[in-house]
Protein backbone atom coordinates (compact mmCIF):
# COMPACT_ATOMS: atom_id res chain seq x y z
CA UNK A 1 0.00 0.00 0.00
CA UNK A 2 1.50 3.37 -0.95
CA UNK A 3 2.69 5.35 2.04
CA UNK A 4 0.40 8.27 1.37
CA UNK A 5 -2.65 5.98 1.33
CA UNK A 6 -1.43 4.46 4.59
CA UNK A 7 -1.65 7.96 6.00
CA UNK A 8 -5.31 8.20 5.00
CA UNK A 9 -6.12 4.86 6.61
CA UNK A 10 -4.02 5.57 9.68
CA UNK A 11 -5.58 9.00 9.98
CA UNK A 12 -9.08 7.59 9.80
CA UNK A 13 -8.23 5.06 12.50
CA UNK A 14 -6.63 7.75 14.66
CA UNK A 15 -9.64 9.99 14.26
CA UNK A 16 -11.99 7.13 15.14
CA UNK A 17 -9.86 6.14 18.12
CA UNK A 18 -9.80 9.71 19.41
CA UNK A 19 -13.56 9.95 19.09
CA UNK A 20 -13.95 6.59 20.82
CA UNK A 21 -11.78 7.83 23.66
CA UNK A 22 -13.73 11.05 24.05
CA UNK A 23 -17.23 9.63 23.87
CA UNK A 24 -16.92 6.14 25.30
CA UNK A 25 -13.65 5.05 26.89
CA UNK A 26 -13.08 8.14 29.03
CA UNK A 27 -16.67 8.47 30.35
CA UNK A 28 -16.77 4.70 31.00
CA UNK A 29 -13.29 3.95 32.33
CA UNK A 30 -12.05 7.12 33.99
CA UNK A 31 -13.30 7.52 37.54
CA UNK A 32 -13.78 10.99 39.01
CA UNK A 33 -11.97 12.19 42.12
CA UNK A 34 -13.66 15.10 43.86
CA UNK A 35 -10.59 15.84 45.96
CA UNK A 36 -8.53 16.95 42.98
CA UNK A 37 -8.79 20.54 41.82
CA UNK A 38 -8.70 19.60 38.14
CA UNK A 39 -10.72 16.72 36.67
CA UNK A 40 -9.02 13.36 36.43
CA UNK A 41 -10.13 13.12 32.82
CA UNK A 42 -8.24 16.28 31.78
CA UNK A 43 -5.11 14.59 30.43
CA UNK A 44 -6.98 11.71 28.73
CA UNK A 45 -9.21 14.26 27.02
CA UNK A 46 -6.22 16.25 25.82
CA UNK A 47 -4.69 13.07 24.39
CA UNK A 48 -8.00 12.18 22.75
CA UNK A 49 -8.23 15.60 21.12
CA UNK A 50 -4.63 15.14 19.97
CA UNK A 51 -5.60 11.87 18.27
CA UNK A 52 -8.54 13.54 16.57
CA UNK A 53 -6.43 16.43 15.30
CA UNK A 54 -3.47 14.34 14.15
CA UNK A 55 -5.74 11.68 12.69
CA UNK A 56 -7.74 14.29 10.85
CA UNK A 57 -4.59 15.90 9.45
CA UNK A 58 -3.25 12.53 8.30
CA UNK A 59 -6.59 11.67 6.71
CA UNK A 60 -6.73 14.95 4.82
CA UNK A 61 -3.11 14.64 3.72
CA UNK A 62 -3.57 11.06 2.60
CA UNK A 63 -6.81 11.70 0.80
CA UNK A 64 -5.80 14.84 -1.04
CA UNK A 65 -2.12 14.25 -1.82
CA UNK A 66 -1.32 13.42 -5.45
CA UNK A 67 0.20 10.04 -6.11
CA UNK A 68 3.79 10.01 -7.29
CA UNK A 69 6.23 7.39 -8.51
CA UNK A 70 8.42 8.16 -5.53
CA UNK A 71 5.66 7.13 -3.14
CA UNK A 72 6.89 3.65 -2.42
CA UNK A 73 4.68 0.92 -1.09
CA UNK A 74 5.53 -0.08 2.44
CA UNK A 75 4.01 -1.93 5.33
CA UNK A 76 2.62 -4.95 3.62
CA UNK A 77 2.92 -8.48 5.00
CA UNK A 78 5.14 -10.86 3.10
CA UNK A 79 3.77 -14.27 2.19
CA UNK A 80 3.56 -16.42 5.29
CA UNK A 81 4.52 -13.53 7.57
CA UNK A 82 1.03 -13.07 9.00
CA UNK A 83 0.80 -16.80 9.65
CA UNK A 84 4.23 -16.76 11.31
CA UNK A 85 3.21 -13.83 13.52
CA UNK A 86 0.00 -15.57 14.57
CA UNK A 87 2.00 -18.71 15.35
CA UNK A 88 4.50 -16.79 17.48
CA UNK A 89 1.69 -15.16 19.45
CA UNK A 90 0.11 -18.57 20.02
CA UNK A 91 3.43 -19.94 21.27
CA UNK A 92 3.79 -17.05 23.73
CA UNK A 93 0.19 -17.32 24.94
CA UNK A 94 0.50 -21.08 25.36
CA UNK A 95 3.73 -20.59 27.27
CA UNK A 96 2.14 -18.10 29.63
CA UNK A 97 -0.79 -20.44 30.26
CA UNK A 98 1.70 -23.25 30.74
CA UNK A 99 3.53 -21.27 33.44
CA UNK A 100 0.31 -21.21 35.47
CA UNK A 101 0.30 -25.00 35.65
CA UNK A 102 3.90 -26.14 35.33
CA UNK A 103 7.36 -25.23 36.59
CA UNK A 104 9.62 -22.94 34.58
CA UNK A 105 11.99 -25.78 33.72
CA UNK A 106 9.14 -27.67 32.06
CA UNK A 107 7.70 -24.83 29.97
CA UNK A 108 10.89 -22.97 29.03
CA UNK A 109 12.42 -25.81 26.98
CA UNK A 110 9.15 -26.04 25.07
CA UNK A 111 9.28 -22.31 24.25
CA UNK A 112 12.82 -22.59 22.96
CA UNK A 113 12.12 -25.77 21.02
CA UNK A 114 9.02 -24.26 19.39
CA UNK A 115 10.90 -21.08 18.42
CA UNK A 116 13.84 -23.04 17.05
CA UNK A 117 11.49 -25.23 15.03
CA UNK A 118 9.83 -22.15 13.56
CA UNK A 119 13.23 -20.84 12.53
CA UNK A 120 13.90 -23.73 10.23
CA UNK A 121 15.49 -27.17 10.01
CA UNK A 122 17.80 -28.10 12.85
CA UNK A 123 19.54 -31.24 13.95
CA UNK A 124 17.78 -32.99 16.86
CA UNK A 125 20.92 -32.91 18.98
CA UNK A 126 21.18 -29.13 18.65
CA UNK A 127 17.49 -28.75 19.42
CA UNK A 128 17.68 -30.88 22.57
CA UNK A 129 20.89 -29.32 23.85
CA UNK A 130 19.76 -25.73 23.38
CA UNK A 131 16.31 -26.44 24.81
CA UNK A 132 17.91 -27.96 27.89
CA UNK A 133 20.98 -25.79 28.51
CA UNK A 134 19.45 -22.36 27.89
CA UNK A 135 16.62 -22.64 30.42
CA UNK A 136 18.88 -24.23 33.02
CA UNK A 137 21.40 -21.40 32.74
CA UNK A 138 18.65 -18.79 32.94
CA UNK A 139 17.10 -20.56 35.94
CA UNK A 140 20.46 -20.68 37.74
CA UNK A 141 21.10 -16.99 36.98
CA UNK A 142 17.65 -15.86 38.08
CA UNK A 143 16.88 -18.13 41.01
CA UNK A 144 20.31 -18.59 42.53
CA UNK A 145 22.49 -15.67 41.48
CA UNK A 146 19.86 -12.93 41.48
CA UNK A 147 17.60 -14.63 44.03
CA UNK A 148 14.42 -14.00 42.07
CA UNK A 149 11.39 -16.24 41.79
CA UNK A 150 10.52 -17.61 38.35
CA UNK A 151 7.06 -18.63 37.14
Amino acid sequence: MPRIRQDALGGALGLAFGACLLFWLIPRWVEPDEDLRLPVSLMPQIVAVGFVLCGGAMLIRGALAPRSKSDQATGGFAQGEFRGLALMILVLLAATLGFQAFHFLVVAPAIIAASMWMFGPIRPVGLVLTSAIGPILIWVLSAHVLGRVLP
Binding site: F99, A108, I111, I112, M116, F119, I122, V149, L150, P151
Partner: peptide, 19 residues
Amino acid sequence: RGQILYPTVLLLCIVGVYM
Protein backbone atom coordinates in the same frame (compact mmCIF):
# COMPACT_ATOMS: atom_id res chain seq x y z
CA ARG B 1 23.53 -19.10 14.91
CA GLY B 2 20.38 -17.05 15.06
CA GLN B 3 18.39 -20.25 15.54
CA ILE B 4 20.05 -20.63 18.95
CA LEU B 5 20.35 -16.98 19.84
CA TYR B 6 16.90 -15.55 19.20
CA PRO B 7 14.81 -18.18 21.02
CA THR B 8 17.12 -17.74 24.02
CA VAL B 9 16.69 -13.97 23.88
CA LEU B 10 12.91 -14.50 23.72
CA LEU B 11 13.04 -16.59 26.89
CA LEU B 12 15.19 -13.94 28.58
CA CYS B 13 12.57 -11.33 27.67
CA ILE B 14 9.82 -13.40 29.30
CA VAL B 15 11.90 -13.98 32.43
CA GLY B 16 12.92 -10.33 32.67
CA VAL B 17 9.34 -9.12 32.40
CA TYR B 18 8.10 -11.61 35.01
CA MET B 19 10.84 -10.73 37.48
